[in-house]
Design a protein around this nucleic acid. Structure first.
Length: 417
RNA sequence: GUGGGUGUAGCUCAGUUGGUUAGAGCGUCGGUUUGUGGUACCGAAUGUCGCGGGUUCGAAUCCCGUCACUCACCCCA
């Protein structure tokens, strides 16, 4: 039996000091979003299951076996969102007039019932961007540049942008057909999985890791062979614009993305220092049906847990540091502690980060506590200070301590902070 | 969903071929003349040995189940 107090498999508490890293990443992300003029959208975590069923593709594993789906008491089929795009499309389709050219971003938890491993939780967090309306190749490039700007703002190095194109929706059936016809004669050289993929997901054969399959794939024509020249030109314009923006990338003709709604540009960002689950981010241009309308856009999702893992150790340390220094009030006796309560309120009213012991601990214990809480300064009062109307101001780093008049305290502190 | 590893005090772990009251370090708490942290010294507390069942005179140790963590496959962010 599991303890009731245990958290669910693959669902973890994000606690101090790590939570500070999250806050820093989020704060910096919001700044970048503002620069690119994207606005936040917060959609519900629970949606009708139908929001995902058709949009993600019926063969995708996410829909087939990873969704946290359940029936409400009213008999509705609902689920915890496994990704962010479909919910945003649901929102956009309901407000299409006002949102013809929406530039949106979201941050929040997503849920997939997979077996947890390094970089894979059942509740995980994505930062996503959806840019709706524009069908310009330059728009794809701007969104990719936005993503590069995020990574830069996070001091994230050792990442690689891999790009590819899937062509237009019209090209798609020709590509599948072309691939199948080239693979048919060599079916025997493929692994079991890939033989299945021949029927329901041919593109996936391209990124199979099986050595035998890799060999077969090397001999295949590039998928651009079956695309309309306009699709190829579209992709070339994306690349040219990226060059203009100064974004580094490599073109990977074998890159495939898992979800069905993608067309034209697709990309993935990988890191070389986070283990097998090395994709930090994936994105692309898409056309998705929602409420009977087709919405076109371009966007990406970033796995925040993976970003945290990919941060250099020094960066993590810097991002987890508390911004404001802490002051602790210490009182030698009851009278001093009561007086400190008043001071506590006053200092907080002026915006300082300050705390004191409320449990009647000894002065030594209070000092020890201040040390453990990494207080930058400690303000100490006892009988003699109360009589004299003064307070001891101790610098916990240098160990220096001086007595200042209560009237001068605020001025003294503002000089320090 | 498949496979491997792991689960002993708050943390990191030790625990000999199953054998008496289960250990260490760190941390926590208290003390070193009652008003001062981070160093030193002294002392103290803390474990249903993940959970349940089985084998045995006897299980932290062996077996089964289960839950969780972890890594890989798969999938994806």
């Amino acid at each position: 039996m599991a303890k009731v107090s245990q958290s669910l498999q693959g669902m973890t508490d994000i606690e101090f000091p790590e939570v500070n890293i999250w806050q820093t990443l989020e704060a910096r992300a919001r700044e970048v979003m503002l620069q690119y003029d994207f606005r936040e959208i917060r959609t519900p975590i629970v949606e009708m299951a139908s929001v995902y069923l058709h949009s993600l593709g019926d063969t995708s594993e996410i829909v087939q076996k990873q969704m946290y789906a359940f029936e409400t008491r009213g008999g509705k089929q609902v689920c915890l969102r496994p990704e962010g795009t479909a919910g945003v499309m649901r929102y956009v389709s309901n407000n299409q007039q006002e949102l013809q050219d929406a530039r949106l971003y979201y941050m929040g938890p997503m849920f997939r019932a997979e077996r947890p491993q390094a970089g894979r939780k059942r509740q995980f967090h994505q930062l996503g961007v959806e840019c709706i309306g524009s069908t310009s190749a330059r728009q794809d490039a701007e969104v990719i540049a936005l993503q590069a700007a995020l990574f830069k703002a996070w001091n994230l190095d050792g990442v690689q942008f891999q790009l590819n194109t899937r062509g237009s929706m019209e090209d798609f059936s020709k590509i599948l057909e072309g691939l199948r016809s080239e693979l048919m004669p060599v079916t025997d050289d493929l692994c079991d999985d890939c033989r299945h993929r021949m029927d329901n997901n041919v593109l996936r054969v391209l990124d199979c890791k099986n050595p035998g399959c890799k060999k077969v794939v090397e001999e295949l024509s590039p998928i651009t062979t079956w695309m309309d020249p306009a699709s190829v030109a579209y992709f070339e314009e994306v690349l040219a614009t990226l060059d203009t923006f100064g974004v580094d990338y490599v073109v990977n003709p074998l890159l495939v993305r898992g979800l069905d709604y993608y067309q034209h540009s697709i990309w993935e960002v990988t890191s070389n220092r986070i283990g097998a689950q090395d994709a930090l981010s994936g994105g692309g241009r898409y056309a998705m049906k929602a409420n009977g309308k087709t919405i076109e856009g371009v966007g990406f999702g970033i796995g925040m847990e993976r970003v945290l893992m990919a941060l250099a150790e020094e960066t993590s340390k810097a991002f987890s540091r508390e911004k404001d220094p802490l002051m602790v009030l210490v009182g030698q006796n009851e009278a001093a502690q009561t007086a400190n309560l008043t001071l506590l309120g006053e200092l907080r009213g002026q915006g300082y980060r300050v705390r004191m012991d409320l449990n009647g601990k000894s002065m030594k214990a209070q000092m020890k506590g201040a040390g453990r809480q990494q207080a930058r300064w400690v303000l100490i009062r006892g009988e003699s200070e109360l009589d004299a109307g003064t307070i001891q101001l101790r610098d916990m780093e240098s160990g220096e301590q001086k007595e200042v008049a209560m009237a001068d305290l605020v001025g003294e502190i503002s000089g320090l902070v």
